[in-house]
């Protein structure tokens, strides 16, 4: 990404000699001396360049440091424990359950989101009312997951709307205590898919919209069906965007948090079955209703592992998605 930006920045200055000779800004700054240009550059960029490490990068490194300690917060004694927090993460059954849940969100939820998005790509291109459908499926992405979880929690109550509708339809056998530990995680995955799919549909549709219309017209004349057009035109020509979407999904779904809290808001601390990795980390930092001392070192170790896993998976997904760019003739 950055390579292209510098290349573009360089090619924009029309006089290469100008660039190698001096470091002045092209075009605009003829009247300004080089030292001044440097000063202006600093004045404009430094607030951001300084605030960003102080407010974001620095704290994240501080988190890595804490992960080697046993600490319950400012004022409490701090003991260095080496790698012990990391070893504990791998031995902790609760963390393992939370991790398995997160993996299910990433994989099962991801399969569902992309299946939905692919199907939408096949028909949403020239469907009647497509602008409305796009906006309506996108709507959940801008709404607080806490609010959505709260509303759905009411619908899924034992005496709630969902069970009553099932009763009205004569499907008493399907009535469930949805928010019980054995069902709640399924509800969460469905919720994540429902809330997430809109964004990915809209994202992938921007790639579909960029495909020249005449390709579809020719395919129509050749006698390809809609699904074949999707298979042989839409899919190959939106590969790059699908790769980007996969990277985004991986990075975002690994952090699934708000929707779980929204769902179980009325029940206090989420049951072990409902926890994702991010929720478990939050709970370790002392945010339980049951009390218990915050384990900041342990929670930091979990965070560091999440960062490493996110970066590793993003690199992996990106590599898998890489392909020779298809050129449209």
């Amino acid at each position: 990404m950055a390579d292209t930006s510098t290349a573009r920045g360089a090619s924009r200055s029309s006089r290469p000699a100008f660039r190698t000779a001096g470091r002045a800004r092209p075009g605009a700054a003829q009247g300004v001396s080089q030292r001044d240009a440097k000063g202006w550059f600093r004045l404009f960029t430094w607030p951001a360049v300084l605030l960003y490490p102080v407010g974001f990068l620095g704290p994240s490194l501080y988190g890595v440091v804490i992960s080697f300690a046993k600490w319950s917060g400012p004022g409490a004694p701090l003991t260095w424990v080496g790698w012990r927090n990391y070893v504990r993460v791998f031995r902790d059954d609760t963390v393992r359950q939370a991790f398995v849940n997160t993996a299910l969100v990433v994989l099962v939820g991801g399969a569902a989101v992309f299946a939905l998005a692919f199907l939408a790509m096949a028909v949403l291109r020239d469907m009647r009312g497509r602008a409305f459908v796009r906006a309506a499926v996108y709507l959940p992405s801008i709404i607080s997951m806490i609010a959505v979880g709260t509303s759905l929690g009411f619908l899924l109550n034992p005496d709630g709307v969902v069970n009553r509708l099932l009763g009205l339809l004569g499907l008493e056998a399907l009535q469930q205590t949805w928010l019980d530990p054995q069902h709640i995680f399924g509800c969460i995955v469905v919720g994540v898919v429902w809330m997430g799919s809109g964004f990915y549909i809209v994202l992938l549709m921007t790639a579909v919209d960029a495909i020249p219309k005449h390709l579809y017209e020719e395919a129509q004349l050749t006698g390809l069906t809609r699904m074949q057009q999707f298979r042989w035109i839409t899919l190959p020509l939106s590969r790059d965007m699908i790769a980007i979407a996969a990277v985004l999904w991986t990075a975002n779904s690994l952090r699934t948090f708000d929707i779980v809290i929204g769902f179980v808001g009325t029940a206090g601390t989420p049951s072990v079955n409902a926890r994702t990795y991010a929720v478990q980390q939050w709970l370790s930092a002392g945010h339980t209703t049951g009390g218990g001392a915050p384990e900041l070192g342990y929670a930091s170790a979990m965070a560091t592992l999440l960062t490493v896993l996110t970066v590793a998976l993003v690199v992996l997904v990106r590599r898998l998605g890489r392909s020779d760019r298809l050129e449209i003739s």
Binding site: G9, R25, I66, A251, R255, Q281, S300, A303, T307
Partner: peptide, 26 residues
């Protein structure tokens, strides 16, 4: 067209990959 412009942009882009969990405890 300063030479540091490109790397600085990369430096900002690196933050996009950082999950909020990494800074939660800090």
């Amino acid at each position: 067209s300063r030479r540091s412009a490109g790397p600085t942009l990369t430096y900002f882009a690196a933050g996009l990959a950082l999950p909020v969990q990494a800074v939660l405890i800090p």
